[in-house]
Design a protein around this nucleic acid. Structure first.
Length: 590
RNA sequence: GGGGCUGUAGCUCAGCUGGUUAGAGUGCCGGUCUGUCACACCGGAGGUCGCGGGUUCGAGCCCCGUCAGCCCCGCCA
């Protein structure tokens, strides 16, 4: 199957069963070992490495001389015989290590200048700086690690398509030149040449299109959708990214969760991992109470507990603020006695940078109690909160919106430092019953926590105006090892409710019709109940391959400043191009 | 928008309290070598210390600014 007019096999595919065959190979010189009379070349392609031997007995003296001069990363066409290596000369570290190719012909078809960054790397050698890896991406992508990542990414894409296709989903493409969205992330804008002063936006997601497809009766849609958001980046956030985007009609939340589980289990299976179904479920409230986050890492225990009642009588000054709306919450760290004073200080620093007033702690070693609030505690009080010999209690005080994120970070940091054995390697869960509103961080007023098409929980419709923060949404997240893989919801299909939600966002009736008239018209044209989901595909691949950054699973990623270092994008536009687009660039002012 | 770390040879890094000619490993070039697999050995070339300014008798090192990469906060419906 890999045979072409120029080659018979891939380098990395050769095995014992090929011994005796004459083969033609094409590949890059990974490394050269020149012993004078005999030259070894490791030839590399996407399947791996094979040793090519050029020596007397099968190669002409001229061929040996030429083999001595080929530089690394040169592209060669090699012809020769596959030969079994003598037992003492096998290389167990190489998949092709039982054989080598005795070259009888060698053609340089792609001469290479000395590479700016090395492709072949010795054991323990550091990678080149990421800036250079991104600048010389064509070289970095030759590294077997990155090749493996992108090859698995391909297989995961195909597997997702197959799984959804088998569930009767239709792959339908939606536009990339679309309309700006009112809320959410900043849009990338694209000027229109034929309509001066008007702009398309690149989609942040195909949200409205997939809902229109449901109204049109396609019933089950999916797409590997490219999405664009002009926001600041992180190791796991790129300005353009891919989602496995799903929408289905005549479904409730259970149906959608089932579809998504099927896809996720298939993806992990493709990577060689067996995942149990159904995934455990937590309500958003449970997740926040027990883990302080809506994406808990369930590989580990160390739950957060409310200790207000147990701690209040002890008269600890640090906790005196624990009144109206404040609680004392903490983590009983089993085996936390091994945390050093420095560790605990750094944990306290973590708590502070995430908004907590500080971190109180008690360490229990036999009858010995120590720590910042150790003198206020006794064994009985510690027993009440589940702190035994060799354990540490870490706690803080404040309203939940302060203590939850701080204790979440403290818990993650404790887990990182103690590195306990995880209960399971792949901890999936669903987080359901998200609130519909969240307080605006500045005004405290209720603002929508999700996109404006998310349906309120039917049981909470009556509380929309009277008690907005108590309203739940039909919104759900898939969480894996403390990472959000994706989210989805059941959508609003009643145009009247949809209008009401837009009005809540502060849109006037005229705004609503201008921006979402086409959606409302569609909803009024006979809309089936529907809902969907979107899996962040790049992040999923990153987690499956264990990459440190999304950049290692994307062929041509952007830097954290959203630049493409290989091609040099973005770049100034030529004045005549701007003129044709009716655009004038204004230099930034201080 | 804010904070932190980093920037010295092609690559990875060292460079003391500010002091003579800025070093190492690797790669590169030349040489020896018929079983290596990060081959080994001998020799050589290679520097805008990110960039600009300042302090100083003297700056890779101190100060200010700036650029780039990475990480964090904000932001990411």
């Amino acid at each position: 199957m890999t045979q072409t007019t120029l080659r018979t096999h891939r380098c990395g595919a050769l095995r014992k069963e090929h011994v005796g065959q004459r083969v033609r190979l094409g590949g890059w010189v990974h490394r050269r070992r020149d012993l004078g009379g005999i030259v070894f070349l490791d030839l590399r392609d996407r399947d791996g490495l094979v040793q090519v031997a050029v020596g007397p007995g099968w190669a002409s003296p001229d061929l040996v001389t030429r083999a001595q001069t080929v530089g690394p990363e040169t592209v060669l066409l090699v012809e020769g015989e596959v030969v079994a290596r003598p037992p003492a000369m096998r290389n167990a570290e190489l998949a092709t290590g039982d054989v080598e190719v005795h070259a009888t012909s060698l053609r340089v078809v792609g001469p290479a200048e000395t590479p700016a960054i090395p492709v072949a790397r010795g054991k323990g050698e550091e990678l080149a700086a990421e800036e250079l890896r991104l600048k010389y991406r064509h070289l970095d992508l030759r590294r077997p690690e990155l090749q493996a990542n992108l090859i698995l990414r391909h297989r995961l894409l195909q597997r997702a398509r197959r799984a959804l296709s088998e569930l009767d989903f239709l792959e339908i493409e939606t536009p990339n030149l679309t309309k700006p969205t009112p809320e959410g992330a900043r849009d990338y804008l694209v000027p229109s040449r034929v309509h001066p002063g008007e702009f398309y936006a690149l989609p942040q997601s195909p949200q409205i299109y997939k809902q229109l497809l449901m109204v049109s009766g396609f019933d089950r849609y999916f797409q590997i959708a490219r999405c664009f958001r002009d926001e600041d980046l992180r190791y796991d956030r790129q300005p353009e990214f891919s989602q496995i985007d799903i929408e289905a009609s005549f479904v409730g939340q259970e149906d959608v969760l089932g579809f998504v589980e099927t896809v996720l289990v298939a993806l992990w299976d493709e990577a060689g991992h067996t995942i149990a179904r159904p995934f455990p479920r937590l309500t958003w409230r449970e997740a926040m109470e027990r883990y302080g986050t809506d994406k808990p890492d369930l590989r580990f225990d160390f739950p957060i507990t409310d200790w207000t009642a147990q701690v209040q009588p002890l008269g600890v000054p640090f906790f005196q603020g624990a009144t109206n709306g404040s609680r004392v919450r903490g983590i009983a760290v089993r085996g936390g006695g091994t945390l050093s004073r420095k560790d605990v200080d750094q944990l306290a620093e973590t708590a502070k940078t995430h908004g907590a007033p500080g971190l109180a702690w008690v360490k229990r070693q036999g009858e010995q109690l120590s720590g910042s609030v150790g003198k206020h505690f006794n064994a009985a009080a510690l027993g009440q909160i589940g702190v035994g010999d060799g354990d540490v209690a870490l706690m803080t005080v404040g309203p939940d919106r302060v203590t939850s994120p701080a204790l979440d970070k403290v818990r993650r940091e404790v887990i990182r430092r103690l590195a306990p054995q995880p209960k399971l390697a792949h901890a999936f869960c669903w987080v359901v019953d998200f609130p519909l509103f969240e307080p605006d961080p500045e005004t405290g007023k209720p603002v929508f926590a999700h996109h404006p098409f998310t349906s309120p929980h039917p049981e909470d419709l009556g509380k929309l105006d009277s008690d907005p923060f108590a309203c739940r949404a039909l919104h759900y997240d898939a969480v894996y090892n403390g990472n959000e893989l994706g989210s989805g919801s059941i959508r609003i299909t009643d145009p009247a409710i949809q209008r009401k939600v837009f009005a809540h966002l502060g849109l006037s009736p005229a705004d609503i019709d201008a921006r979402f008239g086409f959606l409302l018209t569609a909803l009024a044209a006979g809309a089936p109940p529907h809902g969907g989901f979107a899996v962040g595909f790049d992040r999923t691949v990153m987690l499956i391959v264990g990459a440190a950054s999304m950049r290692d699973v994307i062929a041509f990623p952007k830097t954290t400043a959203a630049r493409a270092l290989f091609e040099g994008a973005p770049a100034p536009a030529r004045p005549e191009d701007l003129a044709a687009l009716h655009i004038k660039a204004v230099p930034p002012h201080e």
